[in-house]
Design a protein around this nucleic acid. Structure first.
Length: 215
DNA sequence: GAATAGATTGTCT
DNA sequence: GACAATCTATTCT
């Protein structure tokens, strides 16, 4: 990144800057954009890990065909999205990867923001061990499945309150934002082309950019 | 570098 | 039985 430094990287430093409920209780597109530059923190039993969010996507059920809550689908899996904002929606994808989202909007609106990639900030050694890679590798956290593994996020965090527990978002640096269509939702018809993906301009931890239209 | 197949399981048709 | 908000290894140019 640039030369912007952050005011401290210990557990207490992040806790002091934890984002409150009002951050999440806004329109989902606004929350998705505002997530960029925020710090995703997991004060896990194995150690503190944190990364700067550099890529996100908005999902806005029930009308958004790409959302799991499309058509008002309310199941055990999607239940968290219908709950109050500021909680975690975690799901298993392709049978082996976890994806992490924050619930946005107001209760009853099944809106969520998928966190697609982070730039490692603290706990690189622990992330590397969990990923089975060397630290300082770009592919440590540059994808939704990779970052959950590196940060130790799994289904046990399903529905977790980000305003209280050991997993949360903290305030961070302002970043320059760009938009594009979302990734991997080509099946969603006209919804697939909406520019609901946000990413930090020029950041190398942004997951590989794909041309819209083809897979 | 680009394209492709395989992994693996919860959810829905 | 199909398929998914993905990742990795392998096989090409």
């Amino acid at each position: 990144m640039g030369g912007r430094s952050i005011r401290g990287t210990r557990s207490a430093d992040f806790a002091r800057r934890r984002l409150g409920r009002s951050f999440y209780e806004r329109a989902v597109l606004e929350v998705a954009r505002e997530c960029l530059g925020k710090i995703l923190v997991h004060d896990s039993p194995e150690g503190l890990v944190a990364g700067t969010i550099v890529e996100s996507e908005a999902y806005r059920g029930p009308e958004d065909r790409a959302a799991h809550s499309y058509g008002g689908r309310r199941t055990k899996r999607t239940e968290a999205m219908f709950g109050p904002a500021g909680h975690a929606y975690v799901f298993l994808i392709y049978g082996l990867h976890h994806n992490f989202n924050v619930v946005a909007g107001s209760e009853g609106q099944p809106h969520a923001v998928l966190i697609r990639s982070v730039e490692p900030l603290v706990g690189l050694e622990l992330m590397a061990r969990r990923r089975g890679l060397d630290p300082n590798r770009v592919d440590l956290t540059n994808g939704p499945g990779k970052l959950t593994k590196a940060l130790g996020i799994s289904l046990e965090h399903y529905g977790a309150d980000l305003c209280r527990g050991s997993l949360y978002l903290a305030d961070g640096p302002r970043v320059r934002t760009q938009r594009s269509p979302r990734v991997g939702v080509d099946y969603a018809g006209s919804w697939a082309t909406r520019p609901w993906r946000f990413f930090a301009a020029g950041n190398r931890y942004v997951s590989t950019t794909r041309r819209s239209g083809s897979r």
